[in-house]
């Protein structure tokens, strides 16, 4: 079961990364070539997933769209890690203190804003763009990583070897970086995988509403928005981008589950 999750998840994720990478060099058709006479074609040998309302090849669009999804999600997760992990480490190192309290209450506050509502506020002020989508998703990722980091770090702080390090004269900042961080890396990788999949879903949702990546940049969410009004005429336009999202998110979730079991020996024994 565990190795199956890893294998299946890894393959799906690998497939989409590969598709995104290959799209830099090659796609079956150009994504900017509009050919109205070829529009709404059902899947065929020349267009394996059919064409859209402008005659563009859907497979090619999906490949280039994977780039957008992956880029937005990765940068947003990176932002969450870069802001959240240090905050979590500081909170744990000053546990129970004023700084800890401020950081944790700030977290609660951000959690009260659904990610999409943050995105809506940001787009209302700065206009829709992929960058603003990244910022919105990244802001929401920050408290998640801060919380996970703090929780894991707190339990490490009680261990003997950390006390030994304190006795040896190391400061709290140095201990956090040298001893705590490497020991919670596993957990952060697993959480990162989960947040990555949530990021892909969020990007798709924002782009679907027109608040994310702007045309002509292909994006899975935008493709679904275009498809919606024509779903009676060309159902394949709606089906394939949605499948791409589902398979990527499913792959990431399975990979996350598999990694968690693999990296946490306690869970391995329990199951």
């Amino acid at each position: 079961m565990r190795s199956l999750s890893l294998l299946l998840g890894g393959s799906l994720v690998g497939l989409f990364f590969a598709a995104a990478l290959v799209s830099f060099f090659w796609t079956p058709h150009g994504v900017e070539q509009i050919a109205i006479q070829l529009r709404f074609l059902p899947p065929s040998a020349a267009h394996p997933l059919g064409t859209d309302h402008l005659g563009r090849d859907i497979l090619s669009m999906l490949m280039v769209g994977a780039r957008t999804s992956i880029a937005v999600a990765i940068v947003a997760v990176g932002m969450g890690v870069a802001l959240g992990v240090p905050l979590g480490l500081v909170a744990a190192a000053t546990r129970g203190g004023l700084i800890d309290e401020i950081i944790m209450r700030g977290n609660d506050l951000i959690f009260a804003f659904p990610a999409l509502v943050i995105a809506i506020l940001i787009t209302a002020v700065f206009g829709p763009s992929a960058l603003n989508a990244i910022i919105a998703i990244g802001i929401f990722n920050t408290p998640v990583f801060a919380r996970v980091t703090r929780g894991a770090a707190l339990s490490l702080w009680t261990l003997d070897y950390i006390r030994a390090a304190r006795v040896a004269g190391k400061g709290r900042a140095r201990i956090s970086v040298e001893h705590i961080l490497p020991n919670i890396a596993n957990l952060l990788i697993v959480q990162g995988t989960i947040q990555f999949s949530l990021g892909i879903l969020a990007e798709a949702g924002l782009s679907y509403l027109g608040l994310g990546a702007q045309p002509p940049t292909p994006s899975w969410g935008r493709m679904l928005a275009d498809a919606q009004t024509m779903v009676a005429l060309a159902p394949h336009m709606a089906i394939f981008p949605g499948l791409a999202i589902v398979l990527t998110v499913l792959g990431l979730n399975l990979l996350g589950d598999g990694l968690r079991d693999l990296l946490d020996p306690r869970l391995r024994r329990a199951r």
């Binding site: 999949s197 879903l201 798709a204 949702g205 679907y208 679904l224 498809a227 919606q228 779903v231 009676a232 159902p235 709606a238 089906i239 981008p241 949605g242 999202i245 589902v246 398979l247 998110v249 499913l250 979730n253 399975l254």
Partner: peptide
Amino acid sequence: TQLGIAVPNFWFAILLVL
């Protein structure tokens, strides 16, 4: 349920309409 978590609700909505 693993699949249900991965499905974007707006895509599911479009399929329901279809």
